[in-house]
C-alpha cells in the first residue's frame, strides 16, 4: 500500500537481521582471536609454524565429527554415536585391508560406506521406528562399540601392510615441511560441507526440518527420507574421521572412540549452533572445533595440569553459549 512510508522502518529491520548474522560469527571469531593472543603473549612459540600445524592437525578428527554432527543438530536432532561409529568404520576398513585383501583405495571407500551405513541406520531408527534421536544414536553407539571389539578380537588392527597409509594423514602436503595432509583433507571436506549446507537441498531441508518439521512435511517434502540422508551424511563424516584417526595411528584402536562425540557436539555448540535446530552455520562449527583444539593446546604448552584443562574447556563452553544467548536476546 503505502510503500514509501514503511520502507525506512523496514530497512532498519533488515539491517538488524543482517547484523545479527554477522555478529554471530564475529563473536566466536572474537573469542578465538582473543584466546590466541592471550596464549601468544604468555608463550610466544604458541604461534610458531610447527605449533600452528599441530593445532590444525589436532582439529582434524574432532572437526570432521563436528561437521557431520552439525547437520543433525540443524534438524533439531542429536547424534551421540559419531565417536564409536568413527572407530567402527576404521576397524572395519582395517579388517577389509588385512583379512579380506581389499586394495587400499577400496579399503578407504569401504570405511566411508560403513560410517554412512551406520548413519543411515540411525536415520531409519529416528524416522521409521520413531525413536528419539538421542536413544537411536545411543543404541548405535553401544552397538558399534561392541562390534568394534568383537570384529577386531579386542586387538588393534594395524595398517602396516599398506605402506603409505600413515602418510594419508601425516604426510606432508606438496612436500611442504610440517604441513600435514590431514589439514588439507579437513579444509577440503569443510568446504564441501559448507557447499552442501548452503547450496544444496540437504542443507536447506536440514534447517527447514529444524525450524518447523511439520510445516516442512505439509509442504510435500519427504521429511523422513531427508532425515535418513542427513544422518547418513553425519555417519559418512564419522567415516572421514575414522580414516584420519587410523592413519595417524597407523592402526585402528577398537577401544577408543567413546567421548569423542561430546567434544564434537561441544564444537558445534561453541560455534553457535542451537541444539533446538533450525539455525546455525558450518563456519561456526569449524571455528568451534578450532577453539577447542587451540585452547587445549595452549593450556598444555603452559603446562596447566590435565584436570584443570578439562575444567577450563567446560567454562569456555558455558561462556560461549551464554554470549550467544545474550546476543540473541539483544538483537
Amino acid at each position: 500500500m503505502i510503500k514509501g512510508s514503511i520502507s525506512p522502518k523496514m530497512n532498519n529491520k533488515m539491517n538488524k537481521s543482517l547484523r545479527r548474522d554477522i555478529s554471530h560469527i564475529a563473536i566466536i571469531l572474537g573469542i578465538f582471536v582473543l584466546m590466541i593472543l592471550f596464549f601468544f603473549i604468555l608463550k610466544p612459540n604458541y604461534l610458531s609454524y610447527d605449533n600452528i600445524m599441530t593445532i590444525l592437525l589436532a582439529t582434524c578428527v574432532n572437526g570432521l565429527l563436528a561437521l557431520g554432527v552439525s547437520f543433525v543438530i540443524f534438524t533439531g536432532g542429536i547424534d551421540i554415536s559419531v565417536g564409536c561409529v568413527m572407530t567402527f568404520s576404521s576397524v572395519m576398513s582395517g579388517i577389509a585391508l588385512t583379512k579380506w585383501g581389499f586394495s587400499l583405495p577400496l579399503t578407504i571407500v569401504f570405511g566411508f560406506l560403513v560410517g554412512a551405513f551406520c548413519g543411515a541406520v540411525n536415520g531409519f531408527g529416528v524416522t521409521k521406528m520413531f525413536l528419539p534421536p538421542f536413544i537411536a544414536t545411543m543404541a548405535m553407539q553401544m552397538i558399534t562399540k561392541g562390534l568394534s571389539l568383537v570384529v577386531s578380537g579386542i586387538k588393534p588392527v594395524y595398517f602396516t601392510s599398506a605402506p603409505g597409509y600413515q602418510n594419508i594423514a601425516t604426510g606432508n602436503f606438496l612436500g611442504i615441511q610440517g604441513f600435514y595432509n590431514a589439514i588439507i583433507i579437513l579444509i577440503v571436506i569443510a568446504v564441501i560441507a559448507y557447499i552442501i549446507f548452503s547450496k544444496t537441498l540437504i542443507g536447506r531441508f536440514a534447517l527447514a526440518i529444524g525450524s518447523n518439521e511439520e510445516a516442512t512435511r505439509l509442504s510435500g517434502v519427504k521429511v523422513d527420507n531427508w532425515k535418513i540422508a542427513i544422518y547418513s551424511l553425519c555417519g559418512l563424516f564419522a567415516g572421514f574421521g575414522g580414516l584420519i584417526m587410523s592413519s595417524r595411528l597407523n592402526s585402528a584402536q577398537p577401544q577408543l572412540g567413546a567421548g569423542y562425540e561430546l567434544e564434537a557436539i561441544a564444537a558445534a555448540v561453541i560455534g553457535g549452533n542451537s541444539l533446538n535446530g533450525g539455525e546455525g552455520s558450518i563456519v561456526g562449527t569449524i571455528i568451534g572445533a578450532l577453539i577447542i583444539s587451540s585452547l587445549t593446546n595452549g593450556l598444555r604448552i603452559m603446562s596447566v595440569s590435565t584436570e584443570l584443562q578439562s575444567a577450563i574447556v567446560g567454562v569456555v563452553l558455558a561462556l560461549a553459549v551464554y554470549f550467544d544467548k545474550m546476543r540473541r536476546k539483544n538483537a
Binding site: N51, T54, V61, L249, L256, R300, I301, S303
Partner: peptide, 15 residues
C-alpha cells in the same frame, strides 16, 4: 588415549 597422548606430547615439545 593414543590420539590425545600424541597431542599432549606435541604440546609438551612446544612448551
Amino acid at each position: 588415549d593414543h590420539l590425545k597422548s600424541a597431542e599432549v606430547t606435541k604440546g609438551m615439545l612446544q612448551a
